[in-house]
Design a binder for these strands. Structure first.
Lengths: 167, 167
DNA sequence: TATTGTTATACTCTATAACTATA
DNA sequence: TATAGTTATAGAGTATAACAATA
């Protein structure tokens, strides 16, 4: 039973009008459903969503600094350390101290890491394709575009006493 | 600095093509941004997202059983107990044993609870209105509808060896 | 002095097993 | 026996402060 059907099972007579009409609540339900399935599909490769994202970014940006990957994924640096250490212990990733600046660590995939991320991407692509088939390609693209737009909104811009100098 | 701008700050030269093209990743970024702001807006009323949702459902369904509210919000019963207890200690909610079946607890808002949820809904409505203004009303409604559709998808339906008998 | 990576730590959210009381 | 609520507990995920190494 997935999140959606578990929820629907007994909620038939509940008035959920206000919540279901909000973006915040529908985003949460949507994320629960998609992530539950995502985690399930990738469990065979023993990859959590964060680990998959890290491997993807290193695959497409070999030699990138660790802190940039963490930033791009909105993962705080202290929390990024054990994630990377785990991937390195599993021989999927190598950390190499930068030659030009000893503070940085440049990240690379191992040959095994490249094989794993290729397989993982194809598994994720299946989930994405399944959702695209159900939504239809147009609605699917509109959904991704709308989500990107909301993700980039500065939601605090309409409130006072907030904007301390940004730069 | 919100989640979106924090991410953009240093990610300019990173290739995020694969991840940004997936529904899963964009949903996550979107949820981070919306929830960060949601939590911030409701912090003045000392309400977390889950607490707000519970109050909303009790407000619109007075006398509803506790387990149904939890189910509707995809909150496991053990995790629901301290949430309800907190709201009851704050005199926002009352639990009343059902007269017809002593196992159930019927939930009601106090007068204070009704005042708080009314105020909280108006705060949330401001955030929703701000997002709707940026997206435009049509795109906003299409987004909510698409999210509802994805939230209800049975994402495991395309895989074998999964569906044990549902009922 | 500022930044990267790191450690330690704490708090929130979530998940499971087992207990109780009621049916 | 089955279900609702509860307790205890463990595991993720996430947050901040402080330190070492480097610049």
């Amino acid at each position: 039973m997935n999140a959606a059907s578990r929820r629907d099972a007994n909620a038939g007579t509940l008035d959920t009008g206000f919540l279901e009409g909000t973006l915040g609540f529908t985003i949460r339900l949507c994320q629960l459903n998609v992530f539950d399935d995502f985690i399930d599909r990738l469990s065979g490769l023993d990859l959590r969503p964060a680990e998959f994202s890290i491997l993807c970014l290193i695959a497409d940006n070999p030699g990138c600094r660790a802190s940039r990957i963490a930033e791009c994924l909105c993962i705080k640096r202290p929390n990024f350390v054990p994630l990377l250490s785990g991937l390195e212990q599993r021989k999927l990733v190598v950390r190499r101290r930068s030659e030009t600046d000893g503070r940085f660590q440049d990240l690379f995939l191992t040959a095994l890491g490249r094989r794993v991320v290729t397989k993982a991407k194809s598994v994720v692509a299946e989930q994405e394709q399944y959702m695209a088939d159900r939504l239809g390609p147009r609605k699917r693209d509109e959904l991704v575009n709308a989500l990107r737009m909301v993700a980039r909104l500065d939601l605090r811009a309409d409130r006072e006493g907030w904007r301390v100098k940004e730069s």
